[in-house]
Computed example of a mutant assay.
Amino acid sequence: MIDSKIRVLHVAPSLGSGGTEKVMQSFACNMDREQFATAVYSPVNGPRGRLLRQSGIDTYIGTDLLRVLEKFKPQIVHLHRAGWTEPGSLRPFKLAGTPVLVETNVFGHHDPSPEGALIDCHLFVSEFCASRFEKINSIKVSFPKYGVLYNPVDTDFFLAHCPPGRKIPTNVFGRISRADKGKWSRLAYDFLPALQHLVEQRKLPPFTYKIIGGIPDAEKFVAENGLTEFVRFLPPVLDDAEIADFMNSISFLAHANDTGESFGLVIAEAMAAGLPVITHPSAGLRDNAQLELVDDGKTGIIARNTREYGQAVHFLLTHPEEAHSMGEQARAKAARLFRAQDIARRLGEIYHELLSRKEADGRAGQSRSAI
């Protein structure tokens, strides 16, 4: 019976196709349904709403969050948000008397507001985010108030659909992101003319660069530099099956994003598919968790500038055995650290511990009031 289960409501800003929403979907779908009755609330519907409902997860869409809380009566609300102050957004949970509030803090920001104090546990998505949070805010990251929980990746699915023995094209590589300028760096295309020159000199076989999430700047660069024979811009993908098909069509992932990654979901998915990843450091205190995922020379290559980025692409194109070895090391790391079922199990343990602590605090408070 549902009443014997712990009721968990995941709250996301939308049910769109972004990484935050995908992580929420993975948590909701991978929680132990013998222990937890899970539902999802969002003010904005989107394609993930359909996927959630197909998986048997109830969704509540609209602006009246308080009514949803009164109807579903969650014991735990799990927020998926940037981490900074959002005035008024937490008030419904106070009014409804929600026992436990958990936050997946996507970007590692600090909410010093009185409302922010309502959150019982802030979970950072990488060790980088936790470390930067400590450094900037002089707040110790320690459980139960703070912790680190990597984003879940369905590594079992990618192992089955992108198996180690599959035929990998040696002259095709790719990039995948949202079609958002904020998810790009010029490193993602500035290296192309140098490789084009090598092809013209017959020092490099012709190659194909597949791009999901192209932006006008990239498309203009490709057109103006006569690179259209090397670059294919593709439509967006939504689910893991579509992502696996894309990963099976390339030999490595070319990642470049000036703002960096607080985790790097696409990087982790490429690793789970057995692909090495080229990425780069971010400047200053920008997100840099991509360096936490990619181990230079082991699971991919870290490039610091356009020349190094082009050299990394050239190396992986011309050294398929080394690329394959890096990819399999990447797969092993992803399975060890990001496997969705393991991450969901750990989240369930966190839920239980937070509820136990809240119940113990309540009993202690009753005892003190009786004295």
Rank of each mutant, 00 (worst) to 15 (best):
K181Q: 03
N151C: 04
D180F: 13
L227V: 04
E224A: 01
A218T: 11
S185T: 13
G174D: 10
L149A: 00
D217I: 14
S131D: 15
K183N: 14
N137D: 11
Y209M: 08
R232S: 03
Q196E: 06
I176R: 10
N171V: 00
G182L: 10
E134N: 00
R178D: 14
G182C: 09
P152N: 15
N225Q: 07
N151G: 02
F173C: 15
I176G: 04
K203D: 07
F173T: 15
A179N: 12
S138Y: 03
T170M: 10
K167D: 11
Q196S: 06
S185H: 05
P163N: 04
G174H: 02
Y209I: 09
G214L: 08
H161R: 11
R186S: 05
P152W: 01
T208G: 02
Q196N: 10
F133D: 05
S126N: 05
V231Y: 04
R186P: 06
K140S: 10
K145E: 01
P235I: 08
C162G: 07
I176A: 08
R132M: 01
F157T: 11
P205Y: 10
N137K: 00
Y150M: 01
P193L: 09
A130Q: 03
F191H: 11
F207D: 02
Y150S: 02
L192D: 01
D180A: 11
S142F: 00
E229H: 14
F157S: 06
Y146L: 04
K220H: 05
P144R: 09
P216T: 07
P144I: 05
K167H: 08
L234H: 11
T170A: 13
V237L: 10
V172W: 02
G174P: 06
K167C: 08
G182A: 15
R166P: 10
V199Y: 15
N151R: 02
K140Q: 13
I168M: 07
D154T: 02
P193Q: 07
P216G: 10
L187N: 08
R202I: 12
S142L: 02
L198F: 12
K203S: 15
Q201W: 03
S126K: 08
Y189T: 13
A194R: 14
S142E: 09
D217F: 10
G174F: 02
E127N: 12
K203L: 08
F128D: 12
F133R: 00
D156Y: 15
D154K: 03
R178F: 08
K203P: 00
L204A: 03
V237A: 05
F221Y: 15
P235C: 09
V237H: 10
A223S: 05
N171G: 12
L187A: 05
H161F: 13
T208S: 11
K183L: 11
S138C: 07
R202E: 09
V231W: 00
G147Q: 04
F143P: 01
E229W: 06
P216F: 09
L227Q: 09
P144V: 01
E134S: 06
D154E: 02
D156N: 13
W184K: 10
W184H: 14
S142Q: 03
F191V: 06
L187F: 13
A188V: 03
H197K: 07
I139E: 04
